[in-house]
Design a protein around this nucleic acid. Sequence first.
DNA 1: GTCTATAAGAGGATAGAC
DNA 2: GTCTATCCTCTTATAGAC
Lengths: 215, 215
Amino acid sequence: MAQVSYREKVLRFREDAIVEAVNHLLASKGYDLMTVDEVAAEAGIAKASLYKHFTSKEELAGAAMVRVLDRAMEQASKLEAESGASALDRITSMLLWTLQVQLAGEMPTLPAQNSKLVASLRANRAYMDGLFALSDKLGSWITQAQAEGQLNPELPAEMILFTLYARACDPVLGLLKASGNYADEQIIAWLVTTTLEGLGKRPAAPPAPAPRRVR
Amino acid sequence: MAQVSYREKVLRFREDAIVEAVNHLLASKGYDLMTVDEVAAEAGIAKASLYKHFTSKEELAGAAMVRVLDRAMEQASKLEAESGASALDRITSMLLWTLQVQLAGEMPTLPAQNSKLVASLRANRAYMDGLFALSDKLGSWITQAQAEGQLNPELPAEMILFTLYARACDPVLGLLKASGNYADEQIIAWLVTTTLEGLGKRPAAPPAPAPRRVR
DNA sequence: GTCTATAAGAGGATAGAC
DNA sequence: GTCTATCCTCTTATAGAC
């Protein structure tokens, strides 16, 4: 636990480079079109060496997902430390964060249909732990926001959670960006709005809360 | 144009079976995991024979997409023929229809990241025509609904259109179904609600329109 | 643990007989 | 146009030297 040898540090550094490459490739071309050769090339390492660190392509994908889950958890903890934010504020901030990650081309996405991959993820302890930890935290915010009347209490919290996860890789963002007609901030603002308020016109103008300045 | 020979009828029938198989496989496993061998097997034909009808895997995918676009267009035309429905009613009906198709496991989905496939689709005349025809019709409904104050007029019509397309293959539906906790109708109702009204609690109860009975 | 070289196999596409 | 048999490329994964 205590002393980390130099060798081990180098090892960690290598693995970080590999996972970083996987993350990038998953975000840009997706799991099926990503080849292990590409990962090795982008990480600047021989493929055979890569297989000393990770024993399969599925494990590579798992490592990238663990990384993004960790980053999300870190972000969530940061928001929780801030005072004066409602549960809805925190949820909105997380949604914003995921959209920014996606817009930056750093959101890895995996095909839910690949049963071999899914089985590997389910057997991946770090992945499952990270997923449950994040879901627990977000879930508690969701039920709180529902109790406070800020999220629709008639929806199961589970569904709201799924929707937040789904919007983290919503293709609408990519389509709007590809059209080239809108600024990034505009795109993100629209996605947040439609996720929370839908496509319909609100029946009454929502009373705009006075923006609270943090000093 | 007039006389269709018996041989040609048989041909069409074969091709329908092939496209049907592709549609099913695209919906269940997706493009990358679908193999041409599977398509041939499910269509009850040898692979080499299949290649006499379609020259590539991309073309197979294109044919399946043309089929679903045609079905959607047919549905839209039917809605347009009905009187007494507002633009929003029609849009809602189309959303409902796509969700039902998805729930039935008949919604083919393609990876937007596969550039080779995308290029093939763009060069596919029937696909592009079908896509534009449907988009035009839906687009006109959208702008009408916006003018009538039923859809948020501050959103570009284009974004609303993208969102409708995206919800047609929203993973949330599959996640809710996989949880096994909810009835199909319930799942669809929630998805329609969140798409149009979002996750947030509405500030005022929307005035429920008296249900108009069709006699 | 890193490399070069290669095995092993899947999957898209085709040859050629009928 | 349909079939069987085959080609060939791409990709995952490993052998074995250093």
